[in-house]
Every structure is written in structure tokens, then in C-alpha cells.
Amino acid sequence: MNSLETNKAFRIDSHDNVATLLEPAYTGQRLVVVGALPVNLTAAESIEAWHKVALTAIPANQPIIKYGIVIGVATRDITAGQWVHLHNCHSCFDERSSTLDLHSGAPQDTTYA
């Protein structure tokens, strides 16, 4: 159930510094993180369902950890409760992904002439 009070996020591995939102979150909403190593935190901004929220502060160039493994690197300082996605995390393999549109994922580097 979606309530304005609390919302759920899922942490897969106890080493993870991000959790996946099971429902959309709004700025200031309290988040109950279930799964491995449950914690509570507050959403620092609105975040869509199934997107990731930072569980701790993650400085620039530090690894983003999900499933207990490095899924990318922070491209700027991230604070706890912030949305983690293409704007502040990049892949160590697929360099194109951080050029995609933040919300739709659509490519912006292809010319339609």
C-alpha cells in the first residue's frame, strides 16, 4: 500500500549502499528498507518505483554496490536518500549509458537528420 507516511525499499545484500524502491517515493517520505539489513531513512527527493535510493552518503568516484557487487561508480557526491541513476552513476563497461536521457533512457547521441 502506498502511504504518504512510509514507503518500502528492498536491499538485496548487506553490503549494498543502494536499495530498490518497491513503490514511488516523495521528498521527505520515510522509507522502510526491508530485505538484507533493514534500516530506515528519508527520501531526499521524489523517486520512481523500482529505481534506486542511496542508503548512505556515497562520495564521487566511489563504487555503487547492489547485489554485493560494484554495479557502477558515482560521478558526483551522493547523499543518503537521493536517487541513484544515470545522472550520478556510470557503468564501467557501457560508456553510452550515462549519455542517455535520465527519465526515458532514450539515446541522445544519435543524429536524426
Binding site: T20, L21, E48, A49, W50, H51, K52, I64, I69, V70, I71, G72, V84, H85, L86, C89, H90, S91, C92, F93, D94, S97, L100, H103, S104, G105
Partner: peptide
Amino acid sequence: FAGGLTTIE
């Protein structure tokens, strides 16, 4: 990506 995945990893 739109569904919340950020990287291929």
C-alpha cells in the same frame, strides 16, 4: 533504464 536499471553490470 526507464525501469530503474542504471548500468549493464
